[in-house]
Amino acid sequence: MADTALVTLVTRDSARLEFACPAGMDVLSAAETAGFYLPAMCHAGECGQCHAHAQSGAYEMAPHSKAALPDPGQGGILLCRCQPRGDLTIDLPYEDAKIARQPLITRSAIIESLTPAGEGALALTLTLTPDAQLGGAADFIPGQYMELTVPGTEIRRAYSLANLPNWDGRLDFLIRLVPGGAFSTWLGTRARVGEELSLRGPLGHFTLDDASPRPRVLVGGGCGAAPLVAMLRHLADYQDSLPTHLIFAANREAELLPPALFEELRAGLPQLEITLCVWHPSPGWDGFTGTAAEALAAHLAAQTEMPDIYLCGPPKMLDTARAAALAQGVPAERIFAERLAV
């Protein structure tokens, strides 16, 4: 076995990136050494951001979370845990343009406001501090996220942006508090308006295929609302006219997003249809009762033209929704997903 393996990454748009991976090194680190900064987050096999698919060649996976890797054995890999055992060719689920050629820069922002957004969730707004190298613009693509550091620690967490890119440096987040969680505890108890925070990004490749002529269905649940809200705001901003359907799921009614948000989205995007699903509703609930995957299956069964599907939420929701879409005949490459693994 050679000491150094040749790794070839093939992007969604067929670009091929080749680099050497020394023995003992994972593919993600080797790519960074070669100057390719691939979408990734925890670098520890936990978050699933660096999920990819091995096309050919042998490899070994170091320990990782089951939730982060839904399809082991069928070539599913996490780049941060994958060590080649010989030359390896890997398919990436995104385009070449999503691969950064420079390392990320950490910058700072100020908390502008912090307000409740439904039960157990907060709306956080930051303003970027202008930076000599980066300027002061909030420059991202709807669907992307930022990594925020818990002040006074090295702990970083990903949060998707809910607003639109803008020149004022404004970043809006919708954050569902996780009891006992590091970031959640800081945000829920100690964070104050005016406080400084360090962050980096934008990151992520969960973005709209603007050029697609197909209808779209956006499916979200739990803490997965923000990127879908941003995408819908973007479509409204560009007066998109394609049929668009939002399926949003929660365990209980109180955990759904604030009604004013749905009203804003409907006003901006007149053709938008919204299905709200509640798993355990209280009596009198007149929306869909069940999971996001069940609502998606019901919606797709009534369609003649298969839509593009955008999924965002916890791993279990993603996997069931994906299975439902595939079962209804949606091609795998028309399913875009953001896995909010923990």
Binding site: P130, D131, A132, Q133, L134, G135, G136, A137, D139, W167, D168, G169, L208, D210, A211, H234, Y238
Partner: peptide, 26 residues
Amino acid sequence: WPGVRHLTHADLALVVRAAQALPGFA
């Protein structure tokens, strides 16, 4: 281009705003 902002002469203030928010040449 889909998803790229289209401007008329009346909207040029937006470009000015963008130039001011972006770093420029150091």
